[in-house]
């Protein structure tokens, strides 16, 4: 039973990622006045996949070969595993565990750790540089993003993701927690590698970042993990801040639309913003970016957590 559910989830993710790659290409091409290849550009992702499969696999010479081969799979798994706890509709979730938010946070950290190991296993200065960059940057925003999640948990009073969604029936958390919503959104941009909050590819040194040594199937896993990650981050934003599968207003017309569609619409909105940032902005330099995370976001998130906690306490007990 659970196996078939996992297969359904994986194939849905696969289909969604392929669609996302296609839509992303189309949109970026539209913004950049590029012409699309024949058959509406539909053959392009297939051709890319074909090309990657038949690429020569290049392995590092050192002792890290096994790790080098296994790590992309682990990286991919660490991101796909997050999807187990994401509820797309009332009861439509692989595992509605009572510490879903905690599981997500743990998995986010795990994938960051795996990036460091990928950089090490690639046995190359450039990959190591890229990995250290990426990780330093993600960690700078990770803490503030986790504090943003803490704010949501304080307001909803539960770590179960479906409870968090149901708690937003009156008001989505993006309104009362708007600054935290912004913080978390920027964290999503960092994780999905979208400008302006991404690692700058200075042309040659860090082009391709930590995945620079990967070719063929290893690269397919990492590239796919990136797109699944984009889907994941938009889903997490939807669950935590945009009211999950709930319609925006309790209107008859809105209630007619299946709630899965609402979830999809909210996700697509986030994804669209991710894609458009890719074309619209220059990239912050690494040191500015990290400073921004540590010096501005973290203190602000801390203050907001205390404020949110204080407000919840006062409104619950009625005492000041």
């Amino acid at each position: 039973m659970i196996i078939s559910e996992i297969i359904i989830l994986l194939s849905a993710l696969f289909a969604a990622s392929v669609l996302l790659i296609y839509v992303e290409r189309k949109l970026i091409a539209a913004v950049r006045l590029k012409k699309i290849a024949r058959v509406y550009g539909l053959m392009q992702p297939i051709a890319d996949a074909f090309k990657l499969f038949f690429n020569e696999t290049i392995l590092p010479r050192g002792k890290t070969q096994v790790a080098f081969m296994l790590l992309p799979v682990l990286f991919f798994t660490s991101i796909v595993a997050c999807w187990a706890v994401i509820p797309v509709d009332e009861g439509v979730v692989l595992a509605d565990i009572n510490a879903g938010a905690l599981f997500l946070v743990a998995m986010f950290f795990l994938s960051i750790c795996l990036i460091v190991v990928i950089g090490w296993a690639s046995d190359s200065k450039y990959a190591m540089f890229g990995a250290l960059h990426s990780v330093a940057m993600m960690v700078a925003y990770e803490l503030s993003a986790m504090l943003a999640i803490v704010c949501v948990l304080i307001s909803s009073g539960s770590m179960r993701l479906s409870d968090i969604v149901n708690a937003q029936a009156e008001m989505w958390y993006c309104l009362p927690h708007f600054p935290m919503f912004v913080v978390f959104f920027i964290y999503a941009l960092v994780r999905t590698n979208c400008p302006p909050f991404r690692m700058s590819e200075s042309g040659n040194i860090s082009d391709g970042e930590y995945s620079i040594e990967y070719t063929s199937v290893g690269y397919i896993f990492i590239a796919f993990a990136r797109y699944v990650n984009m889907l994941l981050m938009s889903a997490v934003i939807t669950v935590f801040f945009l009211g999950g599968w709930l319609p925006p207003f309790e209107v008859e017309l809105f209630l007619l639309i299946p709630s899965v569609i609402w979830f999809g619409l909210k996700m697509s909105l986030c994804l669209l913003i991710f894609i458009f940032t890719k074309t619209a902005f220059p990239i912050y330099r690494y040191d500015n970016l990290v400073q921004f995370g540590w010096k501005m976001f973290l203190p602000f998130s801390l203050v907001w957590v205390i404020a949110a906690a204080g407000y919840t306490l006062v409104s619950a007990t009625g005492k000041f």
Binding site: V31, R32, P195, A280, P282, I283
Partner: peptide, 16 residues
Amino acid sequence: IAEGAGNSTPSYYGAA
């Protein structure tokens, strides 16, 4: 220069 700063969109318009 814009591309060095991370925004490659202007180069497509420049190419036109």
